[in-house]
């Protein structure tokens, strides 16, 4: 009986691998729908900008606020800049953006493809000699995989700016030494590993959202279930894969 909770876990992994390989297999095949790819990039990337930026800004601000208070206890408040920037760039931007995007984009993919499934639009595609993975999943997955690192790069900048606002404007730190300290300990590997994480999270969110949508059963209730599962499974996948990616990349 102890095995039961893992059964669902392994089933998800099996389904995920299947859609992952099918997406890879269909990607190079014609016809390439570049218009749909760009449309999806705007939908998942540009339209997500406000919520990602807001998340990053306030995360940077809270980080600065917390670390300033704690570090000032032993007179180390000059390290606030590097603490905020390194946490944002290496970890927080990618993970928090990933969770927000899973809620915004992953759920939308699950709901959209789920509705298409229960209204027989997926069947209609198949009858019209169109593979749903080729037509629906491929552009969504690559759009989000490409847009996530861009979103996270902007989030990095805004998080650091949020930290600056709190440290310098609110807490009265020296702006020059704060900025100096912000970039003092950062190297290119910190930045690139965060962006690699972002790309992986983007791919995970899109694949899971599409997979949940395509396997929807049972009308409106089923669509609701797929939408929820798209977010829950993607969020858990982000947190678990984050550990392994961090281990691998640093």
């Amino acid at each position: 009986m102890a095995f039961v909770p893992f059964e669902g876990f392994f089933r998800e992994i099996g389904r995920f691998s299947q859609i992952f390989w099918r997406t890879l297999a269909w990607t190079p095949r014609r016809p390439w729908d570049l218009r749909e790819l760009f449309r999806q990039m705007v939908r998942v990337g540009v339209d997500s900008l406000p919520v990602v930026l807001l998340t990053a800004l306030f995360t940077g601000m809270v980080m600065a606020l917390q670390t300033f208070t704690v570090l000032s206890r032993f007179g180390a408040e000059r390290y606030v800049g590097s603490l905020v920037s390194l946490s944002m760039v290496r970890e927080l931007s990618a993970v928090l953006s990933g969770l927000v995007i899973a809620g915004r984009v992953g759920s939308a993919m699950g709901a959209e493809l789920g509705t298409m499934r229960v209204t027989e639009q997926i069947d209609a595609l198949q009858v019209m000699a169109t593979d749903p993975v080729h037509y629906l999943v491929v552009p969504r997955v690559w759009a989000l995989t490409a847009m996530m690192p861009l979103l996270v790069l902007i989030a990095d900048g805004l998080g650091i700016y949020g930290g600056y606002l709190v440290a310098v404007v609110l807490m009265g730190a020296n702006p020059v030494s704060h900025m100096e300290n912000t970039f003092q300990f950062m190297d290119l590997n910190d930045l690139s590993s965060g962006l690699i994480k972002a790309a992986v999270f983007g791919m995970l969110i899109a694949l899971i959202g599409c997979q949940q949508g395509l396997s929807t059963r049972g009308g409106a209730e089923g669509v609701g279930r797929s939408t929820t599962r798209s977010v829950v499974v993607a969020s858990v996948a982000i947190l678990i894969s984050d550990f392994f990616l961090t281990k691998l990349l640093f």
Binding site: E120, Q121, A124, Q126, V127, A129
Partner: peptide, 23 residues
């Protein structure tokens, strides 16, 4: 296989219960 079936289906036309139009 999947690809052959996709090609094979071009011989078919199917109208679904509620239309199944792309929204």
């Amino acid at each position: 296989d999947n690809r052959e079936l996709t090609r094979f289906r071009s011989r078919f036309g199917m109208a679904f219960q509620e239309g199944a139009l792309f929204d």
